[in-house]
């Protein structure tokens, strides 16, 4: 068990609000091994960001971890003190965010901000940190890095800022890099460059990466394993190839069918997933996906299935597949 670099066990994260308790993450378990890339997908509001923010213990008020364990190198981060977390953040686990335009402080120079983790964690003095920062800016493909380091974030383009954010994350040599939709705010060509850079980082530095994305193509191209989330719960997880070829949860199955394909028949309609995402304050009984599920059986309405192995490599929360049915066959 303790062999995994990061292991999240039955994590529950809630946001008590005026309208009720939002169960944003409701029993999520996954693990990450050194050097691997894990993709997290799921529709908007399914709890992807809250999951990783829980790992970083950066939840916004009033969010809090209600139960569960977050084992990093065997230590439970869910119970770590603030100073302990400050040691871990930026040094062991780095995180980059969706919108590079707003993720950097507008009033400090870029080089200064990129070098900040080094000053904090490695006790570098200002000059040495800046020198190192310039080096990292160069490594992430920023031309004239020494000049750029002396500029403010607003003088950077979005893609350049995201590169700078990656440089900032990498400078301390963290074991885990969490990227929450790092390319959503960028245009397509820049997206490809940033993803290439992340792949290179993963390869060159051996940094284990958690990549949150809406783009299944990106997952297919970059992630060894994938976790699909739905309504704060894990729908399924497993090696990307297996999950894509043979989904073990109807939500994954529907998700894969809803992607437009170039080889589709002409006039074949896009198959959107019908229905609405569930209310996280009063989730439906049983499996949260059952109101939208084409494979639903009676049991799904009453009982939430546990996360259990289905097939040799995958884990899924589905009574139908756990009973041995194959979704592709059942649908045809």
């Amino acid at each position: 068990m303790a062999d995994h670099l990061l292991e999240v066990q039955d994590l529950h994260t809630v946001f008590p609000t005026k309208d009720g308790v939002v169960k944003a993450v409701d029993g999520v378990s996954f693990h990450l091994d050194p050097g691997e890339t894990l993709g997290i997908v799921g529709e908007s509001g399914s709890g992807k960001s809250v999951t990783v923010l829980s790992v970083m213990r950066l939840l916004q008020r009033p969010g809090r971890i209600a139960s569960g364990r977050i084992l990093y190198k065997g230590r439970d981060l869910a119970k770590a003190s603030d100073p302990e977390m400050q040691e871990i953040r930026g040094e062991e686990i780095a995180m980059i965010f969706q919108d590079p335009m707003t993720s950097m402080n507008p009033v400090f120079k870029t080089g200064w901000q990129v070098g900040e983790p080094l000053r904090l964690h490695k006790n570098f003095d200002a000059k040495k940190a800046l020198k190192e920062a310039v080096g990292f800016l160069h490594k992430v493909g920023i031309p004239e890095a020494d000049k750029r380091a002396d500029q403010y974030p607003h003088e950077f383009s979005g893609g350049m800022r995201q590169r700078a954010m990656i440089a900032m994350g990498l400078s301390t040599g963290p074991n885990v890099l969490i990227a929450d939709e790092p390319t959503t705010a960028l245009d397509v060509t820049i997206q490809a460059q940033i993803l290439d850079l992340l792949r290179k980082v993963n390869h060159d530095f051996g940094t284990a990466t958690i990549l949150i994305t809406h783009n299944l193509g990106v997952v297919a191209g970059m992630c060894e394993r994938v976790m699909v989330m739905y309504a704060g719960k894990v729908a399924e997880q497993g090696p990307t190839e297996d999950v894509f070829a043979n989904p073990k949860h109807p939500y994954t199955w529907s998700l894969l069918r809803s992607i437009p394909r170039l080889d589709a028949q002409e006039h074949e309609p896009l198959r959107a997933i019908e229905g609405l995402p569930p209310d996280l304050i009063n989730p439906p009984t049983g499996c949260p996906f059952h109101p939208r599920c084409p494979f639903r059986i009676d049991r799904c309405i009453r009982e939430m299935p546990p996360l259990e192995p289905v097939g040799p490599t995958q884990l899924a929360t589905c009574w139908v597949t756990q009973a041995g049915r194959d979704l592709n066959e059942a649908a045809s």
């Binding site: 950066l58 930026g90 507008p106 009033v107 904090l120 900032m168």
Partner: peptide, 25 residues
């Protein structure tokens, strides 16, 4: 703001986040 979250994600103390990154802005 997002950049305050970034500052926290770098592992700095709440004091530094508040008085260095947030206050100036």
């Amino acid at each position: 703001q997002d950049y305050v979250r970034t500052a926290r994600a770098k592992g700095m103390s709440e004091r530094r986040v508040t008085y260095l990154h947030a206050l100036r802005n």
